[in-house]
Design a protein around this nucleic acid. Structure first.
Lengths: 331, 331
DNA sequence: TTTTAAAGGAAAACCGGTTTACAAGCTGGG
DNA sequence: CCCAGCTTGTAAACCGGTTTTCCTTTAAAA
């Protein structure tokens, strides 16, 4: 491998001079600069970012932790947003794995892993509100950190999220506008801010609009079709049935399938309203709330860069929008 | 940040001794070892992998290039396979972005980026057979490299892929077994080994079984529903129509939708056979060929580790299997 | 021509580790 | 009691960059 020493020797200058040329620093005669640049090009030299990181304490890498593997496509799209913004700024993205932790002679947590790898900042996604103490190290450190969909803040920590409360409110208002007064909700996994916020929006709006609130109409479960099936199986046995069902897309699709399999029609017998706008929803004509997953990733990266540059630490909450398709009807 | 010097000073030993303790090297009295370990734990010290990389020339990072963003879910699942294997071995994964390249004062290619970042190896995925010269640098370097779905080999380069030829053969034999003699194929994007191999298997088997080969029944396009729509629009206008359609899942689903929209029934009027087994296929009851995407990632990582350790360089070709659902019928 | 300031470049220290060479201390055999 | 040989630990060099300090040129001003 060609190093800065090779270049210095060949160009008959000191390595300090080569360094100045590489970094476009002043204090080098134009003639010398050109000469050094020629040698660099001729030998196809590229400085080692490892060595550079060591001396500057800046690595141009951002770490990502993403342990939970629910909901593949979701994080994938967030990731694309992250990558596009950070890439433009010259950062690469280090996917931090934690498989080895258990075997290690000294267990280490998020913070230690970040320090060990020398990342300039870290994005945390896919974490629920369980075991929050896991994050203590990070929050108390000065490592710039951005959480996606988890509202944690600290000296150098902030978060981004979609406006899930408002999204749920939009959904309920829309259903109410169609004449629905009995609306069920199938919540996502308990402990996740996402799911909690959506439920909050649901409750709040039910109250504001004076709709019927019935605890029996509130279900909860994993983010899967199963959960929709289970809830529908209970709903159809009820004497006092809701007329509309509000649930996250994957669950909503499970519900639609279950309803159809039981001889009900959507939206004739039940209206179904989703949340997320996953691609699959298109194939079911699912009316839903769209959240901008790419935008979430972009916002996360930009916020992280702002934290790194000490420019801004304010959480970012992204707007959502209602997408009208064919699974809700007015009654 | 706590460094090895701090630990050495506090423990009243030399940094060499601390280093030996960290790496479990011999030549340290048990008593000293324990003492140093205690100090390390007390001060929550973790060695900097940046500094370590610099001196050992080994970074425990694997790079990934994945420029094309077709087919999200596919790479996501491959990635999971990669991560699970490499994570176990203590590697982290560096997503290499190339957004900054154009602006850079010296353009650099895959090889230079790898050298610059000091990765121990690199996995290339999502590349087609276009501009193969882009890879010259990598192939001629001694950087361990594994391609996914592109059959490039070099001194330290190999590849993994599913057995796409055989998969196509299975598909055609299955359709022929159901009595189909006129089978159309909608190919994926030209230039990709994946798509080429599948077409090869199709052609070969058509010949072997003495089925009708009609160039008009061969279509080609992007990996999208659109492509399926377009092909079907042509097929239904033909006088001599095929009775079965073979295409990659997303395209096949487009075809199914197009057929239905035009008043045809699947599988009554046309049998449709997919390839890939994407999740969406389930919702259409699509009969298809499954390829093990997780396994592809695992195989890629293991092969890469083998190349790094100079143990094996042989390409890996993974078997596929036929999944029977509801879109093909016997005639 | 001499004085002085500015510009250019080299030398050396540093970042946090690893590794090699060597010295000191201890043990046991003759 | 002395010396060989093993064990333990230290000092120093090194990895490939950056940055500070300082010396040497060169050009401008007096």
């Amino acid at each position: 491998m060609t190093t800065i020493n090779d270049i210095a020797r060949i160009a008959r200058v000191s390595k300090a001079t080569v360094s100045k040329v590489i970094n476009n620093y002043p204090g080098v005669k134009e003639e010398t600069r050109r000469h050094v640049l020629n040698v660099i090009k001729e030998y196809n030299y590229w400085p080692s970012s490892v060595a550079r990181s060591l001396s500057t304490n800046k690595s141009f890498t951002i770490g990502i932790f993403e342990p939970v593997r629910i909901n593949n496509f979701f994080f994938r799209e967030v990731f694309e947003g992250i990558e596009s913004v950070l890439g433009e700024e010259g950062y690469d993205i280090l996917y931090l794995t934690n498989k080895l932790w258990e075997n290690s002679w000294l267990k280490f947590s998020f913070k230690e892993k970040c320090i060990n790898r020398g990342v300039d900042g870290v994005i945390m996604m896919g974490f629920g509100r369980v075991n929050l103490s896991e994050f203590d190290g990070l929050l108390n450190s000065n490592i710039p950190t951005v959480f996606v969909d988890l509202d944690l803040v600290g000296s150098n920590t902030s978060y981004v999220t979609s406006n899930n409360v408002e999204g749920a409110e939009m959904a309920i208002r829309y259903l109410a506008g169609l004449g629905h007064k009995k609306i069920a909700m199938i919540k996502g996994p308990a402990g996740f801010k996402l799911a909690n916020d959506r439920f909050t929006g649901y409750q709040k709006t039910i109250h504001e609009l004076n709709l019927e609130y019935n605890p029996d109409w509130v279900f909860s479960g994993e983010y899967s079709m199963e959960t929709g099936y289970d809830a529908v199986n209970k709903i159809i046995k009820m004497r006092n049935r809701p007329t509309a069902i509000f649930a996250e897309d994957m669950i909503a699709i499970g519900a639609i399938r279950a309803l159809r399999e039981n001889g009900f029609s959507v939206p004739e017998d039940f209206s179904v309203m989703g949340f997320d706008n996953i691609e699959l929803g298109l194939h079911y004509g699912l009316t839903t709330i769209n959240q901008d997953r790419n935008g979430l990733g972009e916002a996360a990266s930009r916020l992280l860069l702002d934290i790194i540059n000490k420019k801004s630490f304010s959480p970012v909450i992204l707007p959502v929008e209602l997408i009208e398709r064919d699974t809700c009807r007015s009654i």
